[in-house]
Design a binder for these strands. Structure first.
Lengths: 199, 199
DNA sequence: TATTTTAGTTAACAGTGTTAGCAAAAATAA
DNA sequence: TTATTTTTGCTAACACTGTTAACTAAAATA
């Protein structure tokens, strides 16, 4: 009997509808103004229906957080495989990281809780681990082929990520939009980091 | 007639009471849970009294934001004057920046909107300008005495600040508390930056 | 056809920032 | 000292927020 399947499909379609409606609202009005009531309004269902699909509002935000980290990880993975030299990979990944942040500002703000109350469960998100693992492996490879193969990879990874996140955060606070000349800052910072790492 | 003065003193004392009550609430429960009603409760006045002293909640937050930047600027100023060599100043200021962030976590989170809706008027705060001016001047001095005096001071300042803010932010997301070994990361990053700047 | 399960609803609770309208107290003027 | 005006602070409400209990109507099963 396909009844159960049809029901499941229907339930899934509502779930997707919730996420799509939420995303549309975020795009137009930002995370701040997203509310359960507005989502319910948009999908033309009553409020409690949303709670049949998500435990609470935070669960919806967590969904997008995961999605964001997944997208970022994918972006970095692609960029990494496009190069062979670890130093080049780090530079290209830095560039891609910056572009991702401003091409997907809503995602980035949610992922790192910039100006919004984000989920405190972020650090447990496996998609985040996936992204950091990608950075760590590249750092390790760069260190292995450097003049100082004894360097602490975790410390260097932390520095690498922090520089990137810091550049993005400060830029987002200052203007919100990425300045074309500002991309030089990333490249300069990345060059400095890689130089210190490899030499 | 000292009546006006007495009234002014009284009004001022309520204003201070509001800020002190708010701060106490933030210390115990965080920015998220701070509300006008709780403040009113704490100062034993009705809600509208608060609106006689502050235009809205954001104005109260802005007050603390300014206070935070003022404190940070003062800290950096002290540290700077304790050294003469610009490179040493940058290192010491980096250290002090890190310490400030974790010794005054509530301030720092508000100042940079980490996990909370912060005022979007931050960039206009003169106390922020004061702090950045301090960093910029030191960067300029370091560049002037370096082997590359033609370096773009604004770019370098941006990099310097971003590294610091990035390190702090990532650390706050990851654990909230500063790891003792993590301070090595700041010092490593600062050393790398200064080396790239001076050499 | 009768019964049970499921889906979706309304209405409420407890909280938020903010403000209009009113009462009482205090300061000023007569 | 009394009357008037100003200031001060209050109650109560509005329009939101996330969340949930209790109920109805529809659909699936026996």
């Amino acid at each position: 009997m396909g009844i159960a399947e049809r029901k499941l499909r229907h339930k899934e379609s509502i779930r997707i509808g919730i996420l799509e409606a939420a995303w549309q609202l975020v795009i137009t009005d930002g995370w701040q103004s997203l509310s359960i009531r507005k989502i319910a309004d948009a999908i033309e269902y009553s409020i409690p229906v949303i709670y049949n699909h998500f435990e609470n509002k935070e669960a919806i935000l967590l969904e997008f957080t995961k999605e964001g980290f997944e997208k970022l990880a994918e972006t970095l993975r692609e960029v990494k495989t496009a190069h062979t030299d670890p130093a080049q990979q780090l530079a290209a990944m830095g560039d891609a990281y910056w572009d991702f942040a401003f091409d997907n500002k809503e995602y980035y703000q949610l992922m790192f809780g910039l100006g919004i109350p984000a989920c405190d469960t972020v650090k447990k998100v496996p998609e985040l681990q996936e992204m950091t693992a990608l950075m760590i492996s590249t750092i390790k490879e760069a260190i292995a082929g450097s003049k100082n193969p004894e360097a602490d990879y975790f410390l260097k990874f932390h520095t690498y990520w922090s520089i990137l996140h810091g550049l993005v955060s400060i830029q987002m606070i200052e203007s919100g939009k990425p300045d074309v000349t500002k991309k030089m800052i990333v490249q300069d910072a990345m060059a400095g980091f890689t130089k210190a790492l490899v030499d």
